[in-house]
Computed example of a mutant assay.
Amino acid sequence: MSNYIVFDLEWNQSAAGKETSLDHLPFEIFEIGAVKLNEKMEQVSQFHRLVRPCVYRQLHYIISEVTHVSMDELDRDGRPFKEVMEEFMEWCGEAPVFCTWGSMDLTELQRNMVYHGMEIPFASPLLFYDVQKLYSLTFSDGKTREALDEAVKLLNIRMDAPFHRALGDAVYTGKVMACLDMKAVGDYVSVDYYRIPRCPEEEIVLNFPDYSKFVSRGFASKEEAMKDKRVTDMVCYKCRRMLRKKIRWFSYGQRFYLCLAACPEHGLMKGKIRMKKAEDGSIFVVKTQKLVGEEGAEFVARKKEEARVRRAERLKTKKHGK
């Protein structure tokens, strides 16, 4: 029986700017709100707590304007983060399925837990539902990311609580989730990247109806990552056949790579690699593979030509610069 935990966080940041932020705690949580849904997407319980800040003791002006929270209120009604988090996990119950609007909340929750010396109790890999993505898959192109208040308006959900407060946003997210056909989009789980795989055996492979995702372990550099066979192999996610590359991996931009491969049975497949920085400073890879038609193949070929032209221009500029 599913135990859906739809939660939202409100957090503060350094009022003096990013340069004064703690390296591994850019955002300090001051509010946790959540609703528990049953398999029928009916709300069966609520959770709401304020957290007393101990790192950023002045509210950033934007946070104050958006949430209408004051530091006096947090000092008066807030409780220590560790105490609130322990209550939250007990309230979540066994095997919770976390659901959030967007992909940041679980990462920031874990960062705050580590800062406060707490062990992370979540499974690894940590899979969750990004309701914002599921909403886009249902009502848009799967790529657009709508703001929560806009989604609520478009679905004609009654607005009886302010936005940008943790419990209200969790309630609204749960109501949006109730409007979705989970049988149609329930396969599209998201993976949290706060804790990346530590070794090849832990690397993550997720197969979805129309694409696949691979999450690597950490590497010292993107050049080292691109030497790894599991990173650069193209394998058809439908028949598991190793594929021949028609266009080999090439870089476009500083963090992205593309390639084009061919499956004799299923056709052309585009590969895309995103280089991401892990919490420990290492580089890890998120590789997606998707079947494409001629238009998708032409896109890859065009990007390769653009990359070739840019590379030639850089070499020419470097030569003349000497």
Rank of each mutant, 00 (worst) to 15 (best):
S136R: 08
Q132V: 02
G142M: 08
T144D: 10
S136Q: 04
R158K: 15
L148W: 03
D141I: 02
V152C: 02
K133I: 03
K143M: 06
T144K: 04
L137A: 00
K153M: 13
N156R: 14
L134K: 04
I157Y: 01
N156M: 14
L127A: 13
E146P: 02
A151D: 01
D130N: 12
R158S: 13
Y129E: 14
D149V: 13
L154H: 07
A151K: 01
L134C: 10
F139V: 12
R145L: 04
L155H: 12
V152P: 02
E146L: 08
D141W: 09
S140W: 02
V152M: 02
L134V: 13
S136D: 01
M159K: 13
F128W: 08
T144Y: 14
K133C: 05
L155Y: 13
T144M: 08
G142L: 06
T144F: 14
S136P: 03
E150W: 09
R158A: 11
L154N: 13
R158Y: 07
D141T: 03
S140H: 11
G142T: 02
K133H: 14
A147H: 14
V152W: 07
A147V: 06
D130K: 04
N156Q: 13
A147N: 12
K143Q: 05
M159R: 09
M159Q: 15
N156V: 03
V131Y: 02
L127Q: 15
F139C: 02
K143A: 05
V131K: 03
F139R: 01
T138M: 10
L137F: 12
L127R: 15
L155Q: 15
E146F: 10
A151W: 05
M159I: 15
G142S: 10
Y135G: 02
L155W: 12
G142H: 07
I157S: 08
A147W: 14
L127F: 15
A147E: 12
E146V: 12
K153W: 13
R158F: 04
E150H: 06
Y129K: 08
F139Y: 15
K153L: 09
V131Q: 02
K153A: 11
D149L: 00
L155S: 11
L154I: 01
E146Y: 05
Y129R: 13
K133Q: 12
F139L: 07
T144G: 03
L154P: 00
V152S: 07
S136G: 04
K153N: 04
A147M: 10
E150I: 14
L148T: 04
L137T: 00
T138F: 01
M159N: 00
S140T: 11
V152I: 14
L148E: 01
G142I: 07
N156P: 00
I157L: 15
L155K: 11
Q132K: 08
F139W: 11
R145N: 05
Y135C: 02
R158L: 06
D130Q: 08
L155T: 11
Y129D: 12
T144R: 07
D141Y: 09
L134A: 08
G142V: 03
K143G: 00
L155D: 08
D141F: 11
A151S: 11
T138C: 09
K133T: 01
K133E: 15
G142R: 05
T138E: 11
A151M: 14
